[in-house]
């Protein structure tokens, strides 16, 4: 590493600054993120979630 401010976790070093808090997807997570049947379900779920956020929306009349 040429610069101490450059962070990565290519080598896991216990108790190092980088290893203090991290999250890396497991093989199962990577698989399920690409598994089309499950992603079709997610696609519907995402659209419903987005509609929920949009329904809270905008263009409200002033309270005054």
């Amino acid at each position: 590493m040429e610069d101490k401010n450059v962070k990565d976790l290519t080598e896991y070093i216990p108790y190092s600054k980088e290893a203090r808090s991290f999250m890396v997807p497991t093989k199962y997570t990577v698989f399920i993120r690409m598994f089309i049947p499950w992603q079709l379900v997610k696609f519907i779920y995402y659209n419903l979630k987005m509609l929920m956020v949009l329904s809270k929306g905008h263009g409200r009349f002033m309270d005054t």
Binding site: M1, N5, V6, K7, D8, F22, V24, P25, V30
Partner: peptide, 23 residues
């Protein structure tokens, strides 16, 4: 309840991307 920081970092760790922050 998870910080978005962990998620963003996990995408870089997964793909071997290094990072410099607060710069």
């Amino acid at each position: 309840l998870v910080s978005g920081k962990l998620f963003a970092e996990s995408t870089f760790l997964e793909k071997g991307i290094k990072w410099v922050e607060r710069a």
